[in-house]
Each structure stands twice: as structure tokens, then as C-alpha cells.
Design a protein around this nucleic acid. Sequence first.
DNA 1: TCAGTTTTAGTCATAATGACTCTAACTAAA
DNA 2: TTTAGTTAGAGTCATTATGACTAAAACTGA
Lengths: 250, 250
Amino acid sequence: MERTPFVAAANVSERLAQPPALAISTVIFALRPSEKSGRPTLWLPLVRRIREPFKGLWALPGGPLTQADSLQDAAARDLQDTTGLAPSYLEQLYAFGGLHRSPSQRVVSIVYWALVQPTEAELAQESENVGWFRADGLQELAFDHNEIVDYALWRLRNKMEYGSIAYHLLGEKFTLAQVREVYEAVLNRTMDPANFRRQLKQTALIEPTDEFQQGGKHRPPRLYRYTGMDSGTNDAGPSGHPPSRLSSPG
Amino acid sequence: MERTPFVAAANVSERLAQPPALAISTVIFALRPSEKSGRPTLWLPLVRRIREPFKGLWALPGGPLTQADSLQDAAARDLQDTTGLAPSYLEQLYAFGGLHRSPSQRVVSIVYWALVQPTEAELAQESENVGWFRADGLQELAFDHNEIVDYALWRLRNKMEYGSIAYHLLGEKFTLAQVREVYEAVLNRTMDPANFRRQLKQTALIEPTDEFQQGGKHRPPRLYRYTGMDSGTNDAGPSGHPPSRLSSPG
DNA sequence: TCAGTTTTAGTCATAATGACTCTAACTAAA
DNA sequence: TTTAGTTAGAGTCATTATGACTAAAACTGA
């Protein structure tokens, strides 16, 4: 994002005369095993800037608003181009329009946030200029992107307290323990397995399958399926989700 | 908002070549007594369009993004200019960027929503081209503004379920019954007075004053004061409010 | 066969909720 | 002065949700 657009402003008066540039950026979250514990933790892909400003620093994927796309489509397209990812969940986060976000021309960024499933996240090409980072304790990023990531994290944790969002970080079938691990990774605290299971089965939109996950060195857990029929890549803006409360157990 | 900016596009290819125009609009809510029952209900001010497109139709107040202002400041300034209002609460709602929101050039609107207190709302100048309308059952508005108002209503009702937002529609001192009336007006259903009072006093950030409201034909109710110290015109975006639950009683 | 693990069901005390009753305190009409 | 009408405000009670906890079930690996 924030590629220097059209003209480089030579001075303040020229800068004020230009209309602000419009950019789209996306914060993408996925679960990956922690290096130490192996437990799932939150990660996000970043791209390295190859030109000024902030050349060499890592930044959120994005770019100028493509004329022919809606905002949502532009976000999805940028995601595909820069990281190869197709998100299972994509929602507008916020429009950032401070006066001095970019040193050259003024840039208004409309930021989306996305969740991708582990199978998709594996496909994401890593390279010299595209890498995955743990969502907490990020290094210094370009522009105001640290602030943006923090806000996206806050929103993710917030949405978590209602139902339905956790499943976009998982595959089609999952165990109840996996759902709990998503909550624990996002909210950064442990939860009582028994109580969590009780609440999930009461309120959440899931149904049991007759399959069980094999391979563990313990009793095989039943696999469940999400029945929320969330249209995936849909916006929670207009036509958004009415919240169905799920409070945190144990 | 959506004043035809800079150049009027002559054809599709020219239109696609131009960068999208940026506009700011605001949905403003205030309580006003219903014509029939006299009970408080939700109203919002609209301005009549005096030029094409949609000349003659009512629309949300707004305008192009002023260069020297942040997004939030631009919203507050437009509010002041078009309706004379200074909101006690102002928050970003959503960025609307569909391809064909405006028939001439493509316009991306960053929409804010605001709450004003009754004393302020009275000051709002009404005129031939500025009027107040009930928030539900609106007539056809210019552009996609019906959709925007509906979404703002959804967000207002949503925020209502956490605490702290209702008081921005009231004055400095208020009775508990008035708070309940705000909830009833916004959520559009009645609530049990006794249970509502109990919950408010448990969780909400209010303190009793030693004053009582006189003039009713019944026992005078105690006046309360909000102690949330919400910095009023602050954003709930980045640096936003962590939600403190208040569920609906009765 | 046994120890170790996680799944899964269940118990129990406490807190929150919704429906309801009753008294207090005022006004207005009789 | 009394009485009816109104809302304020406190309190009761059954039901439900929550958090902490116990324990059996079902697998693996030694």
C-alpha cells in the first residue's frame, strides 16, 4: 500500500492542493504452531517494502484502490496478488486518514482484516519479501501499521466473544478442543475444557459428525462441523452479523 | 456529500481513469418526542440536495474531504456547517465504496455516526433545506443513504447493549426512567422498570445526585449523573472502547 | 497390565436474569 | 380532607448461566 501515487508533492501547498490518495490494506490472521510449545498461535503475513518511504521495513499487504473493484473486491485481489491467499473471512476494519501517515502525499487507507484457514495458509508463498510473523510482539512496521495491527487484534478478540468467528480459522471439520485452542490463542488465556464444551454445545452453531480424529495418544475426539452457513467472504458491515453472545467459559 | 468533484466524467473510460473522489458523511441521531405518544423517539437531520444528482431529494449531511482535516475533524466540521450541531459522540461507521453509488464519478464515502443531546438538537436550525425525520420508516433518500442509515441504526442498537452509549443522547443529569426510555426508543421495545433500574445500578457508570426532578404528577424521581468520563467526541476506532456488557432487562 | 493422556459427562455453589409484588411519594380530582 | 391515579423504588422468587471441580471413558505406549 501507500505507493507514492501520481505526483510526488514538492511542498506543502502543492500537497494540500491534491486530493488524498486512496489505498487498501489488509491484516490477515492465521493459526500456526508456536515455535516453542507447538500450540496454535496467531500469525500474519507481511510484505517487505522495496521502495521509499520505509524501504526495507515490513508492511501490510495492499495497494492503491483498483478502479474497477469494490472496496471488498480490491482487498481480496490485493491479497491474492501479494500473498496468494484467498481468505475465508474478510471484513472492513477501519478507514485510517490521519494527515501525516505517509511522508509524501496524504493517503487515506481503507483497511480490511481477514481470517484464513490453516490449509490455505500453508499455500501462501513465503519469499525474500513475504514472511509470516507472530501477531503479538511485532517489530516496527512501516507507516502506522503497528497501530493498525493492534486495532485489528482488538477487533478480532472482540468478535471472538460472540460466536461464529473462530471457525474461519479452522478447517471444515474440527474437534471441540481445537475450537478451544483458537479461543486460547486469540484471547491469550487458558480455558476450562469441560465448561467450554458445555457452552459451545448449548449456543454455538455446530453439529457432531460420526467421525473421530485418530492419531492422538489418547481417547479420539469427535469431529464437528460448523452449521452457521456464514457466507465466508462476506462483509460484516452493511448486511452484517447480528451478534449471538458466547461468553468465555471456565 | 457527493458533490460532483473536479471533472465530470464524459464516458466510462475517462471515469475509470480518474481516482475515486473522497467524501465524508454523517448520520446524526437525537431524541425527540413522538408526534403521537409524546414519548422520546429517534430522529435524524437531513439536508435537501440543491443540485444534481438526486436534486430535491433528502440526503445525509456531508461533503468532500477537507484537505487540512483528519477524517474525524472533517465530519465534525461538516456537521457544524450544514446543521449547526456539535455532537457529544462521534464515531466512524463504515467506508462505502461501491462502484455506482453516484452516477457521475465514483465516490468513496467515509461515513460517521453521531449522537447529540436534546439541548443541542434544539439549536439545530431547521429551514427549507434542513429538516428532522424519524429514523424508522424514512422516505427514499439520495444515493445509497437509506442503506447507510439502516446500518447506522443497526450499529446504534448494537452498541446499546454495552453500556455508556445511551447517555450521549441525554443531558448532564437524568432520571433512571429517562435512560430506560432511551433504550426503549432505540431498541424499539418496552422494558421492565424495576429490573432495568437494578441492572443499571449494578453495572453502569452513574452516580446519584441529591436533586430530584420536579413537575411530574407523581413521586419525584432522583437525578443521576454519568461518570464514565467518555471523552465525548472521541473515536471508538483505534483507541476504542472495550465493551462493558449491559444486557437488556425486563 | 498399567501409567499417562485427553475426552466427555456430571455435580455444586454462586451469580444473573426475568416476572412479579408491594410500599413510598407525589398530583389532581372529588 | 379524602381518595384515586401515577410513577419511583425496594424487594421476592423461581429459573438459568457461570465457574470450579470430580470422575469415568477411551485411547496409546511402555
